[in-house]
């Protein structure tokens, strides 16, 4: 029995010694060559900015950048620069630590171009080819103004949360989206990038080359061409509609008959005064405001395919 006890103690000692010694030697080795924690080559940074010092920085491991098996993924210095001064002087002396070469907070002096260059060195292609001539680039917007690089969830890439990020600058659109007639943006069914390529240089940062081409992506039935085309419809949907939201049904910018009278002035019912009928009436001069307004009769206002041999067939009533 004593023999067994001795054997156990020896084994335990051996295990203990075997565990401690490598750990001690490893600690000594780590001091000489720190190991990466998340990204390839991150030890230069994470030897200080570890899970205790900067847990939020390590969250980059949750992102596509953290999939290190993809050899294209960056290390810290690919984006932040070698930052030798920061590395050498951090924690030494009583003065402030010199900043990294390229930082993405307000405190860092790097320009938006310098910040964006870090991202564009890999992400210049595809829909970001036109970034440098985009409105956002011209306004000194940097990638990190909208994107959270160090977090597993980047709100601007989430359908439900994206609009809130855009509202940080686009206040007018935030107000418009809360109006009664709108796209299902708060519901996350349509988001800003459904219509806009914010990295591109199309007019109004649209996803397609024109307003109409963008709208046709979802409203293809309006594309036509029709037998009877309504001129402003073929030119620009935004002449009559505000896609971000209005107080009038169907995203109309103004209410009939006022909207229609921005182009139609001729005598008879097209130039009727706005007013609500006192009761049931068949008079077209009194029906341009109530209900669908002028569209009560001119129902196919986006275009008509009727071939009926009628002099008014091109009035979008058939």
């Amino acid at each position: 029995m004593k023999l067994l006890g001795k054997a156990l103690r020896v084994c335990a000692f051996a295990v203990l010694a075997g565990s401690i010694l490598p750990a001690l030697t490893a600690n000594a080795a780590e001091k000489e060559a720190p190991k990466d924690i998340v990204l390839t080559g991150d030890a230069k940074c994470t030897s200080c900015h570890d899970e205790n010092d900067s847990p939020e920085a390590l969250r980059i491991g949750k992102t596509k950048h953290g999939a290190v098996a993809d050899k294209r993924t960056p290390g810290c210095t690919n984006c932040h620069g070698e930052s030798e001064k920061h590395v050498k002087e951090a924690g030494r002396g009583s003065g402030p630590t010199p900043p990294v070469d390229v930082g993405f907070t307000k405190k860092n002096a790097a320009s938006s171009q310098e910040r964006n260059a870090a991202c564009l060195s890999c992400h210049q292609g595809s829909k970001r080819i036109g970034w440098q001539s985009s409105t956002h680039a011209n306004q000194d917007v940097s990638c990190s103004s909208c994107h959270k690089i160090h977090d597993g969830k980047d709100p601007v890439r989430d359908k439900a949360d994206q609009a809130e990020v855009c509202y940080e600058c686009h206040k007018e659109q935030r107000a418009q989206v809360s109006r009664p007639s709108r796209h299902p943006i708060p519901e996350g069914k349509v988001n800003c990038s459904s219509c806009h390529n914010v990295h591109g240089d199309n007019p109004k940062a649209l996803a397609k080359s024109s307003v109409n081409a963008t709208c046709y992506s979802c409203h293809m039935e309006k594309r036509g061409p029709f037998v009877h085309n309504h001129q402003p419809v073929t030119e620009d949907c935004a002449i009559c509609h505000n896609p971000h939201g209005t107080v009038i049904e169907n995203l109309l910018k103004a209410r009939p008959p006022f909207l229609c009278q921005e182009c139609h002035s001729h005598t008879s019912h097209p130039s009727q005064s706005a007013g609500l009928p006192a009761g049931r009436t068949g008079s077209t001069t009194e029906l341009g405001t109530v209900g669908r307004g002028c569209l009560n009769c001119h129902t196919n206002i986006h275009g008509s395919n009727s071939t009926q041999n009628s002099a008014t067939v091109n009035r979008f009533r058939r």
Binding site: P232, E235, D236, I239, E262, C263, H264, S265, H266, T267, S268, P270
Partner: peptide, 18 residues
């Protein structure tokens, strides 16, 4: 100019918004 309106007066007295 546009066609004459139903009332007989020219219907092109307007500057269309676009």
């Amino acid at each position: 100019s546009a066609a004459a309106g139903p009332g007989g007066a020219p219907s092109d007295l307007i500057n269309p918004i676009n």
